[in-house]
Design a protein around this nucleic acid. Structure first.
Length: 725
DNA sequence: GCAAGGTC
């Protein structure tokens, strides 16, 4: 019995093979130098098997347009909503595909070991597609695991299930839509604006369902700041200094927006400026330990405290995961499951010189996680699963963060004692507070947060004192800050834009498109082009830069996973929705022109209709019938010199299913008509022949039903061959 | 020259 095992990446394959073989695997080369083949024997379903373990590198296949639709000037951007797409293995991945094809020939079973998330399920089906093309009846299983440890991997092998087609389908819908919408709007914006604004001639003006809302967040915050009108306000300030200690009292009214009223209240205080202590409250105060670590929280802490970009943090965490040091780093979960053995995880850390003592104390008290509220039902919060002290640089910093956060969240809240003193100055009330920290607890191991004691004088109820300062201060409200990377990630997470793994990339994209820039190296500001694009669509009344559109799709994808919605139906609805938006955007494109003109301070070039890259000269292909070779669309085209017509398979040159008509065909037009057999979806081709040709021997019109029910079309093709001959 | 999602 030979079993082919395929993981999502080489590191995972190596470690899984290591655990299943107890370290006894051998290694040989695959066609791809990055994806090795590991071999060992082990028991599966009571039978000793020859195991072959290899890997892909993420997605193996990618949606692509075919033939003429790849060419920016070969079709109208709008036709991309309906253009055929194929799943294609990119050149740099064909080596991986060849390894799978070679190894599956001799295998009886196939086990999918891709990550247990939505994309992983889809990658699993890509592997299945490739393998079953070679071996249609191979037995297929899905291994389910959420961390690469000996225990989890062995359990996964003993509890093999089936791959989940619904989850994979949802990914196919998502990815096909991303391509169609992204490509059509990108070409639309780019082709139009490059022509209308010569200064943008070298710009690529992309649109994407994630990058645009990300840009939208930056623009929105910028505008909030711009529109902000500061309001002056006034406060009464009271301090009390004895020796070196100054205690600041807070006015119970906080601040007033009327200077005269504030002035009057101050005068009242000054009439009898003796403070009387009315109340001294002492109460325990806690600072809560953090909740278990999820991906975005890790990215945010690393961005703020370690000065690592989200992109870098995730890359490092991924490496630590594949080395078996930490659990899966892409998780939305911040609740530890009951099944996890926290004590043994804490135990692993007790030898460390920095936090070993703390870990030992946690063990003594018993780990007690503060639980969050989110769960993705597949991965636990990020935690260390192996001890190491041999990492360097940023890898060490990220590992340290994961360990310290883990120990912190299973320890105890910091405890303190707060004193609140309330005073009265001629009926105006003020308070001051002091804090004494009693037990640092989690803060001992968690340097990313601080909590400072605040000293206060000893006051007793009924005591009176003369304030050191009693004055009015003026200030004004301040606008919200521009967004930092951490802020932007929070917004993306909140609105479901991108995944844990891609937040950082979308931010990179809008930077590289010159839609946004950085101020002070920290705060995001939109560029003129970024502002113009967002405003242009806003003026049409479209929420292109708002997160709502994506959120609606996300909800439908969830329903596909649950089996309550058909993938094909969701796909059709979404395509229809965006096609409608696209048509309206095309009609009102002057609104984008106007906005871009305004922000870039340049004048729009007035285009002649024939120069408009989006106008009639751009062909929209009419699908005439399915190609006999490959089933893709056949469309009617004319050569560049206008000499000849031909029916071409849109997959050309991959398919080469084109049919040429003789020069004697002077004109050919496609129009809609109805089919007597199967309804309205029929194309009619009218041919006009040159005088004196053989045409009179043949009917002038040929009808072909695009559903393929009508045989006349096939006859026509045969005739065209005869004519050519 | 397009997207977003994997990963190298």
């Amino acid at each position: 019995m030979k079993v082919l095992n395929v993981a999502e990446k080489n590191d995972a394959a190596k470690n899984i093979a290591f655990f299943l073989s107890e370290g006894g695997m051998t290694r040989r080369e695959g066609f791809s130098k990055f994806n090795k083949v590991y071999q060992f024997q082990c028991f599966l379903q009571g039978q000793k098997c020859d195991m072959v373990m290899t890997s892909v590198s993420g997605h193996l296949l990618n949606w692509e347009f075919v033939g003429a639709y790849r060419n920016w000037n070969g079709c109208s951007p709008e036709s991309l909503f309906d253009a055929p797409v194929v799943k294609f293995c990119p050149d740099n991945y064909t080596d991986i595909k060849r390894t799978l094809e070679r190894e599956v020939r001799s295998a009886n079973k196939l086990i999918i070991w891709t990550d247990c998330d939505r994309e992983g399920e889809n990658i699993g089906f890509e592997i299945i597609t490739v393998c079953t093309a070679i071996k249609p009846n191979i037995q297929i299983y899905r291994a389910k695991f959420s961390e690469i440890t000996s225990q989890s991997i062995k359990r996964a092998l003993q509890t093999l299930g089936q791959p989940n087609k619904l989850v994979s389908d949802a990914v196919d819908v998502r990815s096909e839509l991303d391509l169609r919408i992204g490509a059509s709007f990108t070409r639309f914006q780019t082709l139009r604006l490059q022509k209308v604004f010569p200064i943008l001639a070298d710009y690529l003006l992309s649109y994407g369902s994630c990058q645009f809302p990300t840009l939208g967040f930056v623009v929105e915050r910028y505008l909030e700041r711009e529109r902000f009108i500061p309001e002056p306000f006034w406060k009464i300030r009271v301090t009390h200094t004895i020796d070196d200690l100054t205690v600041e009292f807070r006015w119970q009214r906080d601040r007033l927006f009327d200077e005269n009223v504030c002035q009057a209240l101050l005068l009242k205080c000054q009439e009898n400026p003796l403070a009387k202590v009315e109340k001294v409250d002492g109460k325990p105060k806690s600072k809560w330990r953090p909740t278990p670590l999820d991906t975005t929280e890790m990215e945010k802490i690393a961005s703020r405290k370690l000065r690592l970009s989200a992109k870098e943090t995730l890359k490092i965490a991924e490496k630590l995961y594949t080395q078996g040091l930490i659990s899966y780093p892409r998780t939305e979960t911040n609740i530890f499951p009951g099944t996890i053995n926290l004590s043994s995880l804490v135990q692993l850390q007790t030898d460390d010189p920095n936090w070993g003592g703390f870990a030992a104390r946690v063990l003594n008290d018993g780990p007690n996680p503060r639980q969050g509220k989110k769960s993705d039902q597949s991965h636990p919060p990020i935690h260390p699963i192996k001890y190491t002290n041999s990492l360097q640089g940023n890898e060490w910093k990220v590992y340290e963060l994961v360990v310290r956060h883990f120990l912190a969240c299973v320890s105890k809240d910091a405890k303190g004692h707060e004193t609140v003193v309330s005073i009265d100055i001629n009926t105006e009330k003020f308070t001051a507070s002091g804090l004494m920290i009693l037990e640092k607890n989690y803060l001992e191991v968690y340097p990313y947060e601080s909590w400072n004691s605040k000293a206060i004088h000893l006051y007793t109820v009924g005591q009176t004192f003369e304030p050191t300062v009693l004055e009015m201060t003026s200030s004004q409200t301040s606008p919200p800050n521009l967004l930092t990377e951490a802020d932007l990630i929070s917004l993306m997470e909140k609105h479901g834009i991108g995944t844990d793994a891609t937040h950082a990339e979308h931010i990179e994209t809008i930077k590289s498109r010159m839609y946004v820039g950085l101020e002070d190296n920290i705060h995001f500001v939109p560029s003129a082009v970024g502002m113009g694009l967002v405003e242009g669509y806003n003026h049409m009344g479209f929420e292109m830069s708002k997160p709502n559109l994506r959120a609606e799709l996300e909800a439908d994808l969830k329903r596909i996973c649950e089996g309550t919605r058909q993938p094909s139906q969701v796909l059709r609805e979404q395509i229809d929705k965006y096609r409608t938006l696209f048509r309206k955007a095309k009609e009102q494109v002057n609104k984008i022109d106007a906005a871009i003109g305004k922000y870039t301070q340049s004048t729009a070039v007035v285009l002649n209709p024939e120069d408009d890259p989006l106008s009639a000269q751009m062909q929209t292909f009419d699908r005439v019938l399915p190609c006999k070779n490959c089933g893709m669309d056949m469309v009617l085209r004319r050569t560049n010199d206008l000499q000849k017509f031909f029916l071409t398979c849109v997959a050309f040159p991959q398919c080469k299913g084109s049919v040429w008509f003789p020069k004697k065909v002077l004109d050919a037009k496609v129009s809609d008509t109805s089919c007597p057999k199967c309804g309205p979806r029929v194309k009619l081709i009218d041919f006009k022949f040159s005088p004196g040709s053989m045409a009179p021997y043949y009917p002038q019109n040929f009808t072909g039903c695009i559903n393929g029910c009508d045989t006349e079309f096939i006859e026509m093709l045969d005739i065209s061959h005869q004519l050519q001959g």
